[in-house]
Simulated scan of single mutants.
Amino acid sequence: MEINNQFITPMKPWTFGESVSERNTMPKESEGATLFKDIFANAVNNVKLTQADVENKQYLLATGQLEDAHSLPIAESKAAISLSMMVTLRNKALASYNELIKMNT
């Protein structure tokens, strides 16, 4: 079994006489923000792709070119699930942001 370590950041050892300010542990762009940005961008692209697939299948069905009629409801379900996932990600991000704002006041 392989362990995925993409969320684990190794700790740097402290050297004698090093202060916290010299250590400079904060990167310019946090890895978590980049990871969330990538996940959210993938979710948005997934919504665009699934919606385009639904529109294509609707066109094919309307013109009589769709060979398997069951593929349209499947594509619609995929599009609904991907949209729901994107909305959930957005809501969780906003809830987290609001919690951070409350902590600062």
Score class of each variant (00 low, 15 high):
S84H: 08
Q51R: 07
I3S: 14
T105M: 06
Q6V: 15
S82V: 03
M11I: 15
I8Q: 07
L66Q: 03
L83H: 01
E55G: 03
A43M: 06
T105Y: 07
K92A: 12
M11R: 11
S30I: 10
K37Q: 13
T63Q: 07
G17Q: 08
G64Q: 05
Y59V: 02
E99C: 02
T15V: 11
A41R: 05
H70E: 15
L72I: 06
N4T: 11
A79W: 01
S19L: 02
S21V: 09
A93D: 03
I81T: 12
N56H: 12
K57W: 01
N4F: 07
L100F: 04
E22F: 02
I101C: 00
T50Q: 08
S30R: 12
N46L: 15
I3G: 08
H70D: 15
M1I: 15
E31N: 09
V20I: 12
Q65W: 02
P10A: 15
S19V: 04
N45F: 06
R90T: 09
E99G: 06
P27L: 08
M103Y: 06
L72K: 05
P10G: 08
E18Q: 14
T34F: 05
R90P: 00
L94D: 06
E31D: 09
S77Y: 10
S77P: 00
A41D: 10
D38Y: 05
Q65S: 11
S96D: 08
A33T: 07
A33K: 07
F36R: 09
N45V: 03
S96W: 03
N56G: 02
N56E: 10
E76G: 00
